[in-house]
Design a protein around this nucleic acid. Structure first.
Lengths: 215, 215
DNA sequence: TAGATTGTTAATCGATTAACAATC
DNA sequence: TAGATTGTTAATCGATTAACAATC
């Protein structure tokens, strides 16, 4: 009924956390939960939780709360996890390998199709059943296979040219691990930057002795 | 003069980005920059840039702008990068190795002292000059070496016990890569969570076809 | 029905932007 | 000095919280 036409980034960024948390509840066999209980466990106000959910519809029942299973299903649908975006990963170094090994792509809405690297020693190796391809074959590959999303585990200095090539070939989503902030350069794409160095520097700042009283 | 006693998280999270950007300017030999030019390049309003800097002091000169070198120095000081926190990394799998290899710790205010893993096949191996130690020796090690920060590259189910042990032994900063959200459990510590799966799910949501006009 | 808890509106709080006086 | 650009105050915008009527 009351679906909002525009949902703010602040709300969107909380969705995966709700999803994780409610999954956990389901695993534990919890059947229903109220916004108040959720609030206590997640450190978000009950009010905000209800506001957040109501951006997408009415998932609760007055006097009862939320049914864990159907709430989970709803958020699953909201996140679009059933969409299974065709995905490639570029850069099969330690970071690339870590991502391949640890991320449960199907659980996040992606299907890892193929892996690329420009190091001749790595090309043709096999990682988790995927033969690593040469980045030289990337454009050709994209024209045939039409991947939608690219995971970028490559050095910052090659990211821009790489992205141009990919965008020209129809890639429209990026999970970017380089320092380079590509969101500005490709307006019609969706970019999630994971700037690891930034979070580390933030930690550094927050550890400063002078801040002990602050925050 | 006008230093603020409280600086909001929103400002803090922009600091590393300023730092990165201004470093790049210095490398390029740029000597001065105005908030307006910065604004154009960083996609932040000039007003916000000036507000952000003025949380920490007056770094500019009316009619001139900001001197790149001294601005960089100031932000370096603000971030506390000279502090060199004693740091250990726990979990030397692909992700741990990626972090060891790619992060320039000294550039972020940390010194990687030692690496721990509970896999007997990995223990005693050497990674970038660090012999991997057994997690069994962790408490003992902490009591002697007093590391301040731990990088957690371990599975979610062991994170909580691990952290308790570390906190008891004086560790007060965590860079956490597990799904578990430990910020709630240890009130006197500083936690930077890097929830990779969350950013991936956010990307999934933002790629939904129905959102093409939205964002 | 009474109690509980949602959905939703209104109030508050905080963060961003605009404007401009100060000043290099 | 005139022009430019900061530092800072005031206005706006958006996000969070509080409150409560609707309703299960």
């Amino acid at each position: 009924m009351s679906k909002k036409s525009y949902v703010s980034m602040s709300v969107i960024r909380r969705l995966p956390r709700y999803y994780r948390f409610i999954s956990e509840l389901k695993v534990q066999g919890v059947e229903r939960i109220s916004s108040q209980e959720l609030s206590k466990n997640m450190n978000i106000t009950a009010s905000q939780i209800r506001q957040d959910f109501n951006c997408f519809g009415e998932f609760g029942l007055q006097g009862y709360g939320y049914n864990v299973s159907s709430l989970l299903e709803e958020i699953h649908k909201i996140l679009g996890i059933e969409l299974q975006h065709k995905t490639i990963l570029i850069g099969a170094g330690n970071l690339g390998k870590a991502i391949i090994a640890h991320m449960d792509f199907e659980e996040s809405g992606f299907v890892l199709q193929d892996i690329f690297d420009n190091n001749p020693e790595v090309v043709h190796q096999s990682i988790q059943g995927h033969k690593v391809r040469s980045t030289d074959t990337l454009s050709e590959y994209c024209k045939k296979e039409r991947p939608e999303v690219a995971i970028l585990c490559v050095p910052s200095d090659v990211v821009l040219t790489l992205c141009s090539e990919l965008v020209e070939n129809g890639v429209r989503g990026f999970w970017n691990f380089s320092h380079m902030d590509i969101s500005q350069n490709f307006p019609d794409t969706v970019v999630e930057n994971v700037h690891l160095a930034d979070t580390l520097m933030t930690l550094c700042f927050r550890l400063k002795p002078s801040l002990e009283e602050n925050n």
